[in-house]
Write a protein that binds this DNA or RNA. Structure first.
Lengths: 234, 234
DNA sequence: ACATAAATATGTTATACAACAAGTAGCTTT
DNA sequence: AAAGCTACTTGTTGTATAACATATTTATGT
């Protein structure tokens, strides 16, 4: 299931901040003792549809995509994870096996925390419980919103939305315009529910309309307002 | 925002079973004291997109749909509620206003529990916290699954799936074949992400293929296996 | 009972998008 | 440098489904 595994010193106090904040020193100790760090290379599989969920994961470095294999070989990217974000716990709490796949977009470092340890901590600390309730509630709202966007918007709207999403999630490079994540056209298509051909075609159209610019593999957002408008209109 | 409001005696111990089970007598008392019962008539609005969430709701009797207003006047039914199911709490826990609308399909009786009371109980009872974590996790899985079904399946597959969903959720009448929920063709279309015309057309096709039968407004499932097959193939 | 509105039904047209095909550019490997 | 592979690109065709139009049937109100 996994490639590399290796323990190393990490600064829990900063990197696991969100959860960390609600824990006391004793609880933090428990986490420290049971956590492991794993690194994944580009395109490395983190977990697989059908696997039994055992660990909660916190992405420390890198970028991760959560995706589902759909009908006729099609793939839909459900969610993307950025550093200091937790994932991999939904299936466990729902008493299910994983319904999604997770893989690393880029070389990534992930902290693995056994879910039974997390469960114990939840029973002892209502603030931690509330953290999960809030997180799941937020994600459920996003997922419902996404259903509408993917079913009701047209190709241009869906692609524009994906580009804005990538900007908001992973930010821009020093020039203040270039997306700091590189996705293959195929991944971009899988994120936006369209074929690779149409992702390419629509990107070209956007470039011709001077909404974006493409320097080789990199995408620069030229006219964000227009992009938002395209996303809004559908 | 609301039409009717009226207090009446209800049997909490049976009707609120799921949550009830994890509470002690004192906590149950708190719930009893603060709960109100409201009745809604057919098509009555329960809450509205943008409203501030104040109460968690438990549907005691009737049927409720949760839906979103989408692009260009289109509507998507996100979720349907059956008796003794809780809803209306997601937005509160995510610190958001409602992103969805809820309305009664049929005359419905709903128990309203102030969410700040629920929050207090969660802080005091980890089992209640776990109830919500499990529920939200399950719903998130369903929502992600739904995204795939609505985007990747064809019209026939989506409609077949909706019919099976209605059967599983609300069951059949005494004849063991007739769906015990009545949806307008428009609602059925909004549930399946298609136009009303196409919902009608596809129903007619199914009837011609002897997969279902239509007695006026009622829909009878004749060949469930075939329906499952249609749903699976997309 | 009648009028009017709403829901259901069916046919026709328009179009967004997938599917397919064929080619090019940018790499890695030998 | 040639060969091969993969990702990207562009054009063409086919089709699923929305949009529109118009009956017809069924509710609803006065």
């Amino acid at each position: 299931m996994v490639k590399q595994q290796r323990k190393e010193e990490i600064d829990f106090s900063s990197s696991l901040a969100e959860v960390w904040r609600v824990l006391n020193e004793n609880e933090r100790d428990i986490l420290r003792k049971h956590s492991t760090i794993r690194t994944f290379k580009r395109n490395g599989l983190i977990y697989y549809q059908g696997d039994e969920p055992k660990d909660m994961m916190c992405l420390l470095k890198g970028k991760v995509k959560i995706y589902k294999d759909g009908i006729g070989g099609r793939t839909q990217i459900i969610r993307m994870i950025k550093p200091i974000q937790y994932f991999g716990y939904r299936a466990f709490f729902a008493h299910e096996n994983y319904l999604t796949n997770a893989s690393a977009f880029e070389p990534s470092t992930i902290c693995m925390i056994p879910l039974n340890i997390v469960t114990d901590l939840i029973y002892g600390n209502p603030n931690l419980a509330m953290f999960f309730i809030r997180q799941l509630s937020t994600d459920l709202g996003i997922s419902d919103e996404r259903t509408i966007n993917l079913t009701q918007k047209h190709i241009r709207g869906r692609l524009a939305e994906s580009l804005l999403f990538l900007k908001d999630s992973y930010g821009l490079e020093a020039d203040g315009a270039t997306l700091s994540i590189y996705l293959s056209r195929e991944d971009l298509a899988n994120l936006s529910n369209m074929t690779t051909s149409n992702a390419i075609r629509t990107l070209t159209t956007f470039a011709n309309e001077h909404v974006i610019a493409m320097d080789g593999k990199k995408i620069r957002i030229i006219n964000e307002e227009r992009l938002k408008q395209i996303s809004r209109l559908g």
